[in-house]
C-alpha cells in the first residue's frame, strides 16, 4: 500500500515538475501582465507622470464618451469584419480547389500561402509601399499597358488598409479551412453527383454543410487576429483611419497616458473574450460518418 502511495506521489511530482517551466511563464509573466494592465486601467493620470496610484473609473468613462476612441473602435470593428469576411471567402475558394485537385495545386498553393505567414508584417507593409503609390509598380503597369492615362495613387486610402489587412490574415483562414476540408471524404461529391445532384446542389447540400464548422472557426480566428493588427492599417490607410491598437500606442508612447492605454487594452481583451464565448456557443458540432 505504501508502495502504491509512494509511486503515485512520485508520478504527481514528475507531472508538476514537467509543467513548472511553462506554468512559471504563464503565471509570472502572462497572468501578472494581464493583472497589471487591469490594475493600471483604474489608476489616475496627472501629466507629466505616467500614472498616479488610485482607483478611478475615469478612463472607462472616456472609453465610452471620447469620440476619438469611439471612432477608433468603430474603425477597428468594421475593418476587422470586412477583412475577416473577405479572407474567409477567398480562402474557401482556394481550399476548395486544393481539395478537389490536390495533385495539381496542393503543394504550390500551400507554398504560396506560407509567404504572408512567414514574412514579417513590416516587410509586407514595405512591399505595398512599392506597389500602391503614384510612383509605384501598380500605377506604372496600368499606365504602361494603356489601361489608364494618368498615374494613380492607392496608398493612404481605406482600400489600401483593407488590402493589407486581408493579406495579413488570409493564411490563418486558409490553413484552418484546409485542415477542416482535408478531413472530408472526396467520394461524397461523386456519391452526390451519382444521385443526380448538379455541382451547385452538391456544394449547397453536401460540401458547405460539412465545412461550415471550418468557416465559423476561420472567421472567428481571422477576426481576432485582425483586431490586434494596427501597423498595416496605420501605415497604408489615411491618417484619419485610427484603430484601437494604434490608439494604445499613441496613448502609451505618444501621450504617456498609461491608464488610458491600459483601459483600451482591457476593452480589447474583453471584446475578444466575448467573441470567443459567442463563437463557442454558435459553433456547429463536428459530425463524422
Amino acid at each position: 500500500m505504501t508502495d502504491a502511495r509512494r509511486r503515485r506521489t512520485g508520478e504527481a511530482l514528475g507531472f508538476w515538475l514537467l509543467l513548472a517551466p511553462s506554468l512559471l511563464l504563464l503565471v509570472l509573466v502572462f497572468a501578472r501582465t494581464v493583472a497589471g494592465v487591469v490594475r493600471m486601467s483604474f489608476n489616475g493620470w496627472t501629466p507629466p507622470s505616467f500614472y498616479v496610484e488610485d482607483v478611478v473609473l475615469d478612463h472607462y468613462v472616456r472609453l465610452a464618451t471620447d469620440p476619438l476612441i469611439r471612432e477608433a473602435a468603430f474603425n477597428t470593428v468594421v475593418l476587422a469584419f470586412q477583412a475577416a469576411l473577405t479572407s474567409v471567402v477567398l480562402a474557401y475558394v482556394m481550399t476548395l480547389i486544393v481539395w478537389l485537385r490536390p495533385k495539381r495545386f496542393r503543394l504550390t498553393v500551400i507554398g504560396l500561402m506560407l509567404c504572408p505567414l512567414l514574412a514579417s508584417e513590416i516587410s509586407i507593409i514595405f512591399g505595398w509601399w512599392l506597389v500602391l503609390p503614384r510612383n509605384g509598380l501598380l500605377s506604372y503597369m496600368l499606365v504602361g499597358s494603356g489601361l489608364v492615362s494618368e498615374k494613380i495613387n492607392l496608398l493612404y486610402t481605406e482600400f489600401a488598409a483593407f488590402l493589407g489587412l486581408v493579406y495579413a490574415i488570409l493564411p490563418y483562414s486558409f490553413f484552418i479551412l484546409l485542415s477542416v476540408m482535408d478531413r472530408q471524404d472526396r467520394l461524397l461529391i461523386e456519391a452526390s453527383a451519382d444521385l443526380g445532384a448538379s455541382p451547385l446542389s452538391t456544394f449547397r447540400e453536401v460540401v458547405l454543410p460539412l465545412t461550415w464548422r471550418g468557416v465559423v472557426l476561420a472567421f472567428s480566428q481571422a477576426l481576432i487576429w485582425a483586431f490586434g493588427i494596427y501597423a498595416t492599417p496605420s501605415a497604408l490607410g489615411p491618417d484619419t483611419l485610427w484603430t484601437m491598437g494604434q490608439r494604445i500606442q499613441e496613448e502609451m508612447i505618444g501621450r504617456a497616458n498609461w491608464p488610458l492605454a491600459s483601459a483600451i487594452a482591457v476593452a480589447m481583451i474583453a471584446a475578444i473574450a466575448l467573441l470567443l464565448v459567442v463563437m463557442r456557443t454558435v459553433e456547429p458540432k463536428e459530425r463524422t460518418a
Binding site: 502572462f30 501582465t33 494581464v34 481576432i224 490586434g228 494604445i248 491600459s262 487594452a265 480589447m268
Partner: peptide, 19 residues
C-alpha cells in the same frame, strides 16, 4: 497554455512594459 495566443501583441507589449 493557449490563452496568450488570444491576446493581441500590442496588449501584451503594453502590459509587460507596465508590469
Amino acid at each position: 497554455h493557449m490563452l496568450p495566443l488570444f491576446v493581441p501583441g500590442v496588449v501584451l507589449g503594453l502590459g509587460i512594459a507596465i508590469t
